[in-house]
């Protein structure tokens, strides 16, 4: 069971309550919530906010692939996964990503939660533009997405 969405921050905020509702079930004994939030410092610069950009369709495709891999690679069959990533301008402390996972047991919940965030970092086309106290802003460098063969 997967919920995957890119949320335009101009339309709504992402919140943990929707994640809680989605993953809550007596089928699962372990639930982990991961949130990423906007930090006030990066590379010795004072950050005041971040603009997130996204190729929405490709991001959702990557979320689906990562979810399916949990079964094929990690052999975690019974799982509920909620992933939302923000798009647009976020202030300090605001949530950029929520990953909620529910599994039968804690071992697989911890493994799955970590797997999802690490794969998103490598494979989901999302970009950050940091804004600083001196009114400057910079796109963060990032890493090349993996090229697929045709």
């Amino acid at each position: 069971m997967l919920h995957a969405k890119v949320v335009n921050i101009k339309e709504k905020k992402i919140s943990l309550s929707a994640a809680e509702k989605f993953v809550h079930s007596s089928d699962y004994g372990a639930t982990i919530y991961f949130t990423g939030t906007v930090r006030n410092q990066n590379n010795k610069k004072n950050v005041i906010g971040i603009t997130y950009d996204s190729h929405d369709a490709l991001v959702i495709k990557s979320f689906n692939e990562i979810y399916e891999e949990a079964y094929h690679k990690l052999k975690i069959q019974n799982r509920a996964v909620f992933i939302e990533h923000a798009k647009g301008y976020l202030n300090l402390g605001e949530i950029s990503i929520i990953i909620a996972v529910a599994c039968k047991h804690r071992d697989e919940a911890y493994i799955l939660s970590r797997y999802i965030i690490e794969e998103i970092k490598k494979r989901s086309p999302i970009w950050k533009k940091e804004h600083y106290v001196d009114n400057q802003s910079d796109w963060l460098k990032g890493n090349p997405i993996v090229h697929e063969k045709n």
Binding site: G36, H55, I126, W127, K141, P144, I145
Partner: peptide
């Protein structure tokens, strides 16, 4: 065609 520069979300 979309250009996909180096990524880094989360």
């Amino acid at each position: 065609i979309a250009i996909i520069p180096p990524i880094g979300g989360g």
